[in-house]
Structures are given as structure tokens and as C-alpha cells.
Amino acid sequence: MKQRSIQLLISSGMLLLLLSWAHLFVLQQEQGANSNLIFWEFQVPRLLSALLAGAGLSLSGLLMQNLFQNPMAGPYVLGINSGASLFISILILGVAPTFLNEFSYVSAAMTGAFLAASFMFVVSKRVQNIQSLLVIGLMFASFTGAIESVLQSFAAPEQVKQLFIWNMGSLQQMSAAQAPWMATIVLFGIASTLFLVKGLNAMVLGEAHALQLGVKVKLLKISILFVTALLAGSITAYCGPIAFVGLAIPNLSRALLKTQDHLLLILFSVLAGSCFLVAIDVLILLLDPWLSLPVNVLTAVIGAPYVAYLMLRQR
């Protein structure tokens, strides 16, 4: 059992290295005067975006699923992205441009994500089943969408365009200067999750059970919400909303590892999430001579059927 998990961890790590190598050195060979600049300013940040966003989103999905006791939870379906998106819209559309800097974007997105996650968590205590919760997530997303539309009708076309572009989601937006920030946040998120392992394991059978096993459930819940907001919020700020990774990868991890040991799940989700997004981006690079695809189209093409399959299997 353990051996199998360790084998899977090692092989996914090797796959990740292989994919990253292909991404950076096989598919994006650049010649000419600019090649060095293009490598450091465009190609490396793009790979890092895929690695960090994949890792962070799937980890936040894992945390959400644990907190909500629901394998269909994830930062995207529960409207965590929408919360981040709403706060970013308010920032882009409503605040004086002087306040628009790196820090304000990320903190707005994280605040929005945290509030959305907390709201959904409070609501989840009052609804009986998965379906209702997902419908509420859907409603929440359309609610924030509506507010964004109203804000947009008052905004200058240029701001609307900026928001539109951001809302498409992209692995190519992050600059080399932003990369260390995003890396720090995501790595901090992963590291702090490792300290939650014991509580996460005990939470598998619900809050009451975890409480009996001596877990400080309130602290754990707040930590989960905080780390999720940190990860999903910052990734949304840097890359826009990226769908399906957060929902699909943790489910895939559980199915492959056949365990609820969150140390293994965290490590594997992080690796598999990175692998998934890098593989998607490799596919985009491969297809590039024929058609240029945005990242969310491919995550949806691959992720949506898998999620639909999971839903059907739930019955």
C-alpha cells in the first residue's frame, strides 16, 4: 500500500520533470538575438505559472473537499474564484489607478476568496446535500457575475477590457518579477498545509469525529479557509480563474493512491496538479502551429468529462 503510493509519488515527480523539460527546452526553442530575454521573461514564467497554479489549485481543492466533506467541492465550483474575481473587478473598476499595484491585486483576490469560502462554508451547514450546495455555488457565481456586469456598465471601456482579459485565465500573464511572489505564496501554502495533516486526516469522518480525536476543529477550519483563500486567491490574481484543476486532481489522487492519508494526498495532489497544467500547456504548445488555444478551453475539455463521470459515479 505504502509502497504503491511512494512509487506513484516518484513516478509523478519524474513525469513532472520530463514535462517541464519538454515544455522549456523542446517545444520552445528560440533562436536569435532575443532568445535569452524570451527564455527568462516569457518561457520560464509561463512554466512556473503552470507548475504553481497546478499545485496550488489542486491543493486548495483537496482542502475544500476535506472541509466540506464533499468530493465535488473545489475552488471553482464553490465560487471561491468568483469571490476573488468580484473583488478584483471592484479594484479594477472602482478604485483610483494609483492604488492598483501588485499587492492590492493579490490581497483583494485573497480577501474575496476568503469571504466567498467562509460564506459557502456557513451556507453548507444549512443545506442537506451536495446538489444544493453546488446550486448555491452556481447562484453565488451568477450573483457576483451580475454585480460585475453592473459595475462594468459604469466603467470605462478600457477597464472593462482589462477585466475581460483577466477573466479569461492565462498562464502567460505572470511576469518574471511576479514569479518569486507567487512562488513564495504557493510554497508557503503547501508548507503550512503539511502542519494540518493530522487534523485533515481526522476530519475525514466529519467534525464531531475529529473533535473526539482531540483536533482543534475551529482552528483547523479557519486554517483551511485561510490557506485555500491564500492559494486560490493569489493564483486567481496572477493567472485569472482556471477551472477544473482544483476539483479533478484531488479526486484523481484519491482514486489512484486509494488512501485518505493527507500527507500522501497533499504531496501527490501538488505533483499531479503541476503535471496536469504543465501537460495542458505542453499540448497547447504542440497544437500551436495549427491553432492557438487558451488554457481554460483545454482544462475544460479534459476536466469537464472527468468531473461529469465523478458526478455520475456518485449516484
Binding site: K198, N201, H262, L263
Partner: peptide, 12 residues
């Protein structure tokens, strides 16, 4: 899981 109360921070 019954051992959780007796385990260290990382739950090993």
C-alpha cells in the same frame, strides 16, 4: 485514526 491523539504534529 484512533492513534491521532497520541501522534506528533505531522500525524505520522
Amino acid at each position: 485514526l484512533g492513534r491521532v491523539p497520541h501522534l506528533g504534529a505531522f500525524g505520522r
